[in-house]
Structures are given as structure tokens and as C-alpha cells.
């Protein structure tokens, strides 16, 4: 098989792909959401809460 030869079509190529499957097959979307989710829900939220703790007066 040469570099330019295309992968042969199969019956599965004609099957409809569900939305969930398309989502799972999209590394870019997984990357974005996988970084955004803990960054917002854990890190940013936690840091904002700590920064709002008033400093003790000396």
C-alpha cells in the first residue's frame, strides 16, 4: 500500500455516528473541556476564595 492510497470504505463508513461519539472522537474539544473544567471549578474558584480571606491585622 502506498502513502497516497486511501483506506478502503467499509459498511461502517455509511453508519450514522452519534453526537456523543463525535464528541469522544474530538481530541481538541476534550482538551479544551478537560483543562477548563478543573481550572475553573477547582483552581480559580479556590484561589478566589483564599484571596477573599481578610488579612489579619498586626
Amino acid at each position: 500500500m502506498t502513502e497516497t492510497e486511501k483506506m478502503p470504505e467499509t459498511e461502517e463508513d455509511l453508519e450514522p455516528v452519534s453526537g456523543w461519539q463525535m464528541f469522544y472522537d474530538d481530541p481538541s474539544m476534550l482538551l479544551f473541556l478537560g483543562i477548563a473544567s478543573p481550572t475553573i471549578l477547582y483552581t480559580l474558584w479556590g484561589v478566589i476564595e483564599v484571596l477573599h480571606v481578610p488579612l489579619a491585622g498586626y
Binding site: L33, G34, S37, P38, L41, Y42, W45, G46, E49, V53
Partner: peptide, 26 residues
């Protein structure tokens, strides 16, 4: 991918400075 990292809060459950909501949600 979405939820495992949020469990990091379980290291901070007895720490001061963060809300019950943040801890419990995560």
C-alpha cells in the same frame, strides 16, 4: 477527565479559608 482532578479538594477539607460550597461541590 472532567471530575477526577476536582477531588484534589479532599486534601483541603480541614483547611481554613475556603467555603463549604467549594469543598462539597468538588
Amino acid at each position: 477527565l472532567f471530575a477526577l482532578q476536582l477531588g484534589s479538594v479532599h486534601h483541603l477539607l480541614s483547611d481554613p479559608g475556603t467555603s463549604f460550597t467549594w469543598r462539597t461541590f468538588n
